[in-house]
Amino acid sequence: MPPDAINALAQYTVSGLTTGSVYALLALGYSLIFNATGIVNFTQGDFLSLGGLVLYSLLVGQGLPIVVAFPATIAIVALAGALVERVCLRPARSRQMIILIFITMAASTLMRGLMKQGWGKLPLALPPLSPDVPFRLMGAVLTPQNLWVMGMTLCGIAALAWFFRATVTGKAMRAAAADPRTARLMGVEVERLTTLSFAFAGALGALGGMLITPITSLSYDIGLMLGLKGFAAAVLGGYGSFAGAVAGGVLLGLFESYGAGYVTSAYRDVLVFGLLILVLFVRPQGLFGATGRRA
């Protein structure tokens, strides 16, 4: 291959892995909530927007140092996630799946409205986590933010994996996801864990938002399309599977980046969602989903 082609390939790979990381974080959020409630939560993308916006306010507005602002943002958006569950879903009079899904859609509209009130409609500029000095690696131009995205995503996934394997609460959450009735009989407080799942989903969204918005742009509705792609990643990997969510996110990010680079940039979303639909036709349970799972 000529050097230019190798450079281009490397560049596409880097950008695919970067957005793929964020899709993976979002997909994990979707899977967490699916395992806890059986529904798809359409506020996941708004958690991402909110993460970026809160970090902006804490950094730029309050002048807090990043080491304080970063965890504080995660905590705040996690709280918002818990609120969505407690205020919108818990009091719902219906347990019908389509109603619950729609409640999350309405909550998403409301959240966007609130964020538009709070931060306005104009795009904001969130500074990257470390000074923006591009460097070359194997022909691709990288910014430190690219590394931050991938590194922090790995940390997030590792922390989540540790939580589910090593802590009592994490094990209880896995048990509740596998069989809520039995888990309840064994003394697991399933309701509390559902709220916790939403808080985690909020935290994952916030993490994605803080990492990606310095690269894309920051506005109240930035999470819309990203949220849908995260949903697509979760479905691609097999809804509810954590490994599937991560794999689905990375695959979707790479596919989108190569597709936009080599095939067509204008129709990149057609490629992404077309691929997704094709995969579903061949494997209705997603790439890594087990058959017979509740979906």
Partner: peptide, 24 residues
């Protein structure tokens, strides 16, 4: 093919179809 899917997969497939038509 789409209506063989259930639940969240059907939601995603129909949303995806709409997004595709929209982009076109």
């Amino acid at each position: 093919p789409t209506l063989r899917l259930k639940g969240n997969y059907l939601v995603m497939a129909t949303l995806g179809f709409n997004l595709i038509v929209d982009v076109i």
